[in-house]
């Protein structure tokens, strides 16, 4: 068997130049929101565990449900739920922005910045509204 020469076939990998990555660019709102869209998506992925826990507890009985209510009502639970609400709304609004961009609209410098800012402002506003409604109108968790 012939020994493979470096960089020819099997074995050694040739070191190739890489295209520049995130760290060389100045962070811009569109870029940061793009990253945040992915991060919120990943967070929501694991957040589905909370929904599953809540549903299975409701199906299991009053005791199991009381445990979920206790956790959701605790300080950590409330923080997690608040973050979950914002992540969900932000991912939804970011998704709408991407759907608009999919139609090849909203790419002008001003438009794209406005759209991106709108998702951020919108998600924070909607989250606050939802929590105010949750606490004042519906009496909050528990």
């Amino acid at each position: 068997m012939v020994e493979p020469e470096a960089g020819t076939s099997t074995g050694m990998r040739r070191v190739r130049p890489l295209s520049p990555h995130l760290q060389i660019y100045k962070p811009m709102l569109t870029m940061v929101m793009s990253i945040v869209h992915r991060i919120t998506g990943a967070a929501l992925y694991f957040g589905m565990l909370l929904l599953a826990w809540w549903l299975i507890a409701a199906a299991s009985g009053p005791n199991a449900y009381a445990n979920v209510e206790w956790f959701m009502g605790s300080l950590i639970g409330q923080l997690v739920l608040f973050g979950y609400t914002w992540a969900l709304l932000h991912h939804m609004l970011g998704g709408i922005r991407h759907l608009i961009w999919d139609t090849i609209h909203g790419f002008e410098p001003v438009e794209r910045e406005l759209l991106t800012l709108a998702t951020l402002v919108g998600s924070i506003t909607l989250t606050l509204i939802l929590w105010v409604v949750g606490y004042l109108v519906m009496g909050g968790p528990r």
Binding site: A58, A66, T85, L130, G134, P141
Partner: peptide
């Protein structure tokens, strides 16, 4: 997912504080 998420949020909000 857009209408379904809105629906889910409304459902959860309506269920806050209710008994089992």
């Amino acid at each position: 997912g857009i209408p379904l998420t809105i629906g889910l949020l409304l459902i959860i909000t309506a269920l806050l504080g209710r008994s089992h």
